[in-house]
C-alpha cells in the first residue's frame, strides 16, 4: 500500500491573532472522496488553502504523497494538487479554452509554447467536464454551472492526482448541482483522483462521498462515513441546530432537514 494522498499533522492556523484551525490532523486515502462539513467560520476553506500550500500553517504540516509540502516547489505542487476556489465575481474575458490552457502552466517553460501533450490534456479536461462545446465562449458569458465546470476543467488540466474544491455546488440550480456531483463521482471512481470538497450540501455532496470530516471552531468535531454523520445527534453537535431526518436519500442514506427549534 502506497502513502495516503494527504496527511495533515497538528495543523494550526492563526490569522490576525485569531485561531482559525486548531490541531487538525487527518488522513485522506488515495482515490478517496472526502467532504468537509461544518458551520460557517469553522475553518473549512482555510483547511483547503493549507492543503494546497496557498496558506502557510502556523504550526503542524501537510504531507502530500508522502512528502511534506515544504519539499515541493510551487510548480511541482501544482502538478499534483489543484484547487477550485469559490466562484469569483471578477469578470473574466478569457475564452474557456484559453482559461483551461492556463491550467497547463506548471508544465510549461517560460517562453515555450503549448506542446501536443498540453493540447491533449486541455481537450481531455474539457471533454470530461463537458465544456468542449463552450470552448470559444468567454468565461464571463457562461452560466454559474458552466463556469464551475470550466473551472474544474482548468484544475484537471494541471494533471494532478488531488482535486480540492470549495463549495462546488453552491449557487447552482439542481440540474447543474447533479452534473457537478456526477463529475466528481466519475473523477474519483474512474480517474482515481483523490477529491476533497468543502460543502454545506449534506443531502447530495456528502451522500456521494466516501468519508466525511466535520470541523467546528477550527477543530475536528467528527469523522466517519456519511452514514455515521448523517445522524440527528451528530449533526446537532456539529451545527448547534436541530435536524429532522427522513428516509429516502441517495444510497440508502437519510435526508437531512433543518428543524425549527422545538419542532
Amino acid at each position: 500500500m502506497s502513502d495516503p494522498a494527504i496527511i495533515t499533522e497538528g495543523l494550526c492556523v492563526v490569522l490576525d491573532e485569531t485561531e482559525i484551525l486548531k490541531d487538525v490532523s487527518m488522513t485522506v486515502g488515495r482515490g478517496e472522496f472526502l467532504t468537509v462539513i461544518g458551520p460557517n467560520g469553522a475553518g473549512k476553506s482555510t483547511l483547503l488553502r493549507c492543503l494546497d500550500g496557498i496558506l502557510e500553517p502556523s504550526a503542524g504540516r501537510v504531507i502530500i504523497d508522502g512528502r511534506p509540502l515544504g519539499d515541493y516547489e510551487r510548480r511541482e505542487l501544482a502538478r499534483t494538487v489543484s484547487y477550485v476556489p469559490q466562484p469569483d465575481s471578477g469578470s473574466l474575458d478569457f475564452t474557456v479554452r484559453s482559461y483551461v490552457e492556463m491550467g497547463r502552466y506548471p508544465h510549461l517553460g517560460a517562453w515555450a509554447a503549448l506542446t501536443e501533450a498540453d493540447a491533449e490534456a486541455v481537450v481531455e479536461s474539457m471533454e470530461l467536464t463537458e465544456v468542449a462545446g463552450l470552448a470559444d465562449r468567454t468565461m464571463s458569458s457562461l452560466s454559474g454551472g458552466e463556469r464551475q465546470r470550466a473551472s474544474i476543467a482548468a484544475a484537471l488540466a494541471q494533471g494532478g492526482s488531488v482535486l480540492l474544491l470549495d463549495e462546488p455546488t453552491s449557487f447552482l440550480d439542481y440540474r447543474h448541482q447533479v452534473k457537478i456531483l456526477d463529475l466528481l463521482d466519475r473523477l474519483h471512481r474512474d480517474e482515481g483522483l483523490t477529491v476533497v470538497a468543502v460543502t454545506h450540501d449534506l443531502n447530495s455532496t456528502v451522500a456521494f462521498s466516501d468519508e466525511v470530516l466535520a470541523l467546528k471552531d477550527g477543530k475536528v468535531a467528527a469523522t466517519g462515513k456519511p452514514a455515521d454523520l448523517l445522524d440527528a445527534d451528530a449533526l446537532a453537535a456539529i451545527y448547534d441546530a436541530d435536524f429532522r431526518l427522513i428516509s429516502g436519500g441517495h444510497r440508502g442514506l437519510p435526508l437531512v432537514l433543518p428543524a425549527r427549534n422545538g419542532s
Binding site: D52, G53, R75, S82, Y83, D88, M102, G103, P106
Partner: peptide, 14 residues
C-alpha cells in the same frame, strides 16, 4: 494572465 484571474488561482496553478 494568471495573476489577473486572482492571486489564489495563480498560486494553485503553480
Amino acid at each position: 494572465d494568471l495573476l489577473a484571474t486572482g492571486p489564489e488561482i495563480a498560486a494553485s496553478r503553480g
